[in-house]
Design a protein around this nucleic acid. Structure first.
Lengths: 118, 118, 118, 118
DNA sequence: GTGGTCTAGACCACC
DNA sequence: GTGGTCTAGACCACA
């Protein structure tokens, strides 16, 4: 996997995991790769994966069974969707609108653009 | 001016300057504040302003007349608008659309949201 | 290392690094000294080394692995040679020839001089 | 006139004047442009031209008649040629040879290049 | 451990 | 006055 240099790798790994859950590749109550394995897969230091896992554990997206591994929380999908939606509407969208105003881009242009790639 | 701690101050200063140009407060071929002056205004170390100026000079947004000061490039406004628009349509918008798809948000919702804050 | 005062130290450090690469002391894909270490070696402030490294990174001569250090780009040697050769033939040599003409120095004299120091 | 940003403007003006003398545009015992005039021609601050003139005066390349203007020294041409030749053989040429060695360029290549542009 | 950012302050060349 | 370079030293995020 290729990481951008704009944001910390552990954040990008968090996003990667959230994506897996959203896309239902990693399902509730199922075990996810061990820190070690994922570190190998992503070509990254295990500490870095560890940090991502820890934060997701704090967020109650995944949980740890000691000696066994990490698992996706039962209601992880809903929680993730809700969280991402909120972030989307509260943070990202307003930023986009502000930029549109600044650059004098109107909604019709966006729509056209949207339909084109649809 | 208040700086967020999410991104480096010198980047925020770059954005500040680009904003000035976009809003036509700082016009092409006109001299912009000296490094020292802006540093005082923004309550920041001159080195930090310098770094912002240097990078904008590399981007051909501003230029330096030795011993005199920095000036806005003649075509800076166009360049800035074009650059920001491209970034918007090529980078930000696709990201938004991808997220919409993932979160199962349709365009109507966005529009409603947009009209509300309008 | 001794620095001349004709040009900025960070430029001289860049040249120092390019020399290392040209002379194959620092090889492609190998890690180069950390900023701090080189700063100690060269008896210079870390910021100054940092500046040299940053510019060489912009030039794609070296790259950074976060938290690990700087590495020589795979094709750095070729790139450096090519770049220096181009500079030599396009910039330096014509300047020399122009000067020769102006000072009425012919090629034979140069050759003699060259053989003497050979 | 266009100035490079590699060296101070006043140095470039000195070179400009030396060129004029070498090319015999400005001849011994003849008056050269006033500081003011040259400043206008070169689109430069008079102080900058002044500095160039002063240094050339120190070098006995030009001299000043108070209230009248600056003049080229009688033996300026010889002096300039000698000085430039020395600089050429002592400074520039060795630098070139060192670079040739480093880049593995041999004399034959230079010669070929030279004959091509001849 | 690594690099990246920032400050405070100095010194210098140049215009 | 202008910018450019450099130092010393601090603090922080990241791997």
């Amino acid at each position: 996997m290729k990481f951008t240099k704009n944001s910390p790798i552990y954040i990008q790994i968090k996003d990667y995991i959230i994506m897996k859950i959203l896309k239902k590749k990693w399902e509730p109550e199922k075990r996810i790769p061990s820190i070690r394995d994922l570190a190998v897969t992503l070509e990254v230091n295990p500490n870095t994966v560890m940090r991502a896992y820890s934060e997701l554990e704090d967020d109650n997206i995944i949980y740890n069974k000691r000696g066994i591994g990490y698992f996706v929380e039962e209601n992880a999908l809903d929680k993730v969707i809700e969280r991402e939606k909120e972030k989307f509407f509260e943070k990202q969208l307003p930023k986009i609108f502000k930029k549109m105003e600044l650059l004098d881009i109107n909604f019709a242009q966006i729509k056209k653009y949207y339909e084109k790639i649809e």
